[in-house]
Design a protein around this nucleic acid. Structure first.
Lengths: 171, 171
DNA sequence: GAAAAAATGCAACAATATATCATTATGGGG
DNA sequence: CCCCATAATGATATATTGTTGCATTTTTTC
């Protein structure tokens, strides 16, 4: 196990093209994500309470972004006392510990493919099927850093969200 | 005049480092922006009505993003009947004609430095002084396009918003 | 087991945005 | 010039997203 609770060379992100879902066992995907989250919280001495875990599971129920008030509805059966604050506080916890991401362009939340290390994701969002792919860190991040560096701009938060139509949905 | 109502080699964007405001005559900046907008609307046969023009001017009142309900307040003196719809409709018009941009990460609006041609901006947002710089199209866009192309993803909308601290504000 | 800290409950409200239908203004063809 | 079609705005209501403040409960620590 490495720092984020995953084996080396393993990531929660789906392989090279996340939009091609064939052979993707999402149950397994979800369980891995939850295991990683639990492991991280234990290492850090933070508490993945029942409420937080449920929100986490719901966010991970697919690779499509989920909205806060939808989470609230889905939460009601198990947590009848849940209110907007409950959801937003759970989301805040998960965001703070890099277990999920927020998509600014959609006001929605999605599981983080490389949890644990605080980072800013770069996302491809299919407008048709709703699937979101988190791009691995890389040249793009470097180039943004370079552009900013040229004018002495110190980056704090990066929002890179690319919406369009994935290969699958173009047929 | 070229297609966007500006002379060649001229842009509404402030030179190389937009965060350095010295010598920046914003009145002139605003007037140029308005002239360009009027010119564009005339060419296209679209109507920059009093309401739309006022919203445009207010958005251009600085190089910081402006929120819709702030616009509404500022609009009231001249347009007492203005309601949220009025503002959002004017913003929609200005967005559709690439006269302004929306910053997803702030729910706010800002003048477009290269108006007329529909495009997606890439922004540096200073969290301290609020100044926003629109980066010129370039390598970054190409690289995003390349990454997307690798997996057959057709880009429709790009959101690239980098928040941080500008050189001026780091002192 | 008591005190401190963390998490949740609960109520109200703030901020952002859209829907719907009526009314008014504008530009074009007779 | 007037009528018509279209575009724009007015007016009202409502939907969506997110926050504040304080009380209560749960968990941890000593």
């Amino acid at each position: 196990m490495n720092f984020n609770g995953l084996n080396n060379n393993e990531s929660l992100a789906i392989a090279s093209n996340p939009f091609i879902a064939d052979g993707h066992d999402h149950g397994r995907c979800q369980r891995k994500a939850l295991a990683a989250a639990k492991s991280l919280c234990q290492q850090r001495g933070t508490r993945l309470t029942a409420l937080r875990q449920r929100v986490f599971e719901l966010v991970w129920s697919s690779h499509s972004p989920v909205k806060a008030y939808d989470l609230l509805e889905q939460l009601k059966p198990d947590h009848p006392s849940a209110a907007p604050t409950s959801v937003y506080r759970a989301l805040e916890f998960l965001l703070d510990h890099a277990l999920i991401h927020r998509l600014q362009s959609l006001n929605a939340y999605i599981g983080c493919g490389t949890p644990g290390r605080l980072h800013h994701g770069q996302f491809l969002i299919c407008q048709r099927c709703g699937t979101v792919a988190e791009l691995p860190d890389g040249d793009l991040r470097k180039q943004i850093g370079h552009r900013a560096g040229e004018i002495g701009f110190r980056i704090e938060i990066e929002t890179v969200e690319i919406s369009g139509i994935c290969a699958n949905c173009q047929g």
